[in-house]
Simulated assay, not measured.
Amino acid sequence: MPDRDELPDLEQIERDLRDRALNKQKVALDTLATVSADIAVPILARLLASSDFMQRRVAVMGLGNHLVEPSFELLAGVLKNDRDPNVTGEAANSIFDFGDRAIPLLVSLFEHTDSWLIRQSIISLLLDTDRHAEILTVAEIAIADETQSVKEVGILALGHLLTSPLQEPALALLLTLCHDPFWRNRWRAAISLQRLKNPATTAAIAQLQQDEHFRVVAAALEVANHWASQSG
C-alpha cells in the first residue's frame, strides 16, 4: 500500500475509470486496488452513481478489490436497486468474495430476478460453496425457469447435491426429470446422475439407455461405463 505522499494521480485514475477504452479502465482499476479503501471506495462510489451502466459495472468490479464494510453496503445496494443485469451480475461476483454474509443476498437476488445471466452466475458461485440448502433452493427455482440454459444449470446443480446431505430431495427431482418431455432435460439429468450409483439411479440410467433421443442414450451409456470403470 503506497504512502499518501506516494499516491498515484487520483484525478487521472477517476478519468480513466470513466473512459471508454477498456485498457485504460483495467489499468486504473489495478492501480486503485493498491490504494487504501478509505481513498478508493469514495472514488468508486462516485462512479457507481453514473447513469452509464458500463461505468457502474467498472465501479462494482473495483469494489470487489476492497473487502471493507462500505464496499459491502454499496454492493448490497446494487443488488437491490440496479436494474441492469450486467451491473448486478458483476456485483454478485464482487460481493461473493465477502463470504457467508453475502449468500442470503445472492439467493434473494436469484429469487427476484428474471435475468438468465444473473441466475446462471449465482448458481455457478454457489456451487463453489458448501451451502447445500441454498443450492437446493436456487436449483428448484432454476428447473422451473422458462430459459432453457438456466434450467440446465439447475439440473446440474442438483447433481452436485447427490454427494451432499441433501442427496434425497435432489435425487427425487432428478429422477422426475429423467421422464421430462424435452430431451435436453433428460440428457442433463442423465449426466447429473453420474455422481451417485444406487438402485434408483442404476434403474434410471438403464431406462435412459432406451431413450428415443440419441444424445440421451449416449449420456446414459457414458454414465454406465463410468460406473463400470469405477467398480473395476
Rank of each mutant, 00 (worst) to 15 (best):
R101C: 04
L166T: 09
L166S: 12
V223T: 06
D3N: 15
P104R: 12
R101H: 05
E73P: 00
L67C: 07
D97G: 05
S229G: 00
A172F: 05
I141F: 14
A91H: 06
L74F: 07
V216L: 04
I103H: 06
P199Q: 07
D114Q: 14
L173Q: 14
L174Q: 05
L161T: 10
R57N: 10
W183Y: 11
L221E: 15
T137Y: 02
E146I: 11
F98L: 05
A219D: 08
L29K: 02
L7A: 05
Q25I: 09
I103K: 08
E73F: 02
I135C: 06
L125R: 12
G232L: 10
V58T: 13
L175I: 10
F182M: 03
I13E: 02
R56S: 04
E146H: 13
A40K: 07
Q230F: 04
A203Q: 15
L175M: 08
T129Q: 12
I43N: 01
D82Y: 02
A206R: 12
L125H: 06
S164V: 05
A40G: 05
Q148C: 04
E222S: 14
K24A: 07
R83Y: 02
A170S: 15
M54D: 12
S229P: 00
A76E: 13
H160T: 09
D100T: 14
R57P: 00
E140I: 02
T202H: 08
S192K: 03
N185F: 01
A206Q: 14
E134D: 15
S192P: 02
E111S: 13
I118G: 08
R18D: 01
T34M: 12
A21I: 09
I43T: 04
A220V: 09
N23K: 02
L177C: 00
L136E: 06
G159Q: 03
D16Q: 13
V68K: 05
A206Y: 00
G64C: 09
F182S: 05
V138H: 06
M1C: 12
A228W: 03
E212F: 03
A28C: 04
A91L: 03
Q148L: 14
R18W: 00
H112M: 01
R4A: 08
L75R: 09
N23V: 01
P85T: 04
I205L: 07
M54V: 11
S50L: 06
P85D: 13
I141A: 12
L174C: 06
R215E: 14
R184H: 02
T129E: 07
L136W: 10
R215M: 08
W116S: 15
L158A: 13
S229Y: 05
K151G: 13
D128A: 13
A40L: 11
M54N: 14
Q120H: 03
F214Y: 10
S124D: 11
A204F: 11
F72N: 12
W116D: 14
A92D: 03
F110V: 04
Q230Y: 03
D145S: 08
L166H: 14
A218N: 13
I103D: 08
Q194E: 15
A204T: 11
V60G: 03
L109K: 15
T31V: 10
L32G: 03
L171A: 09
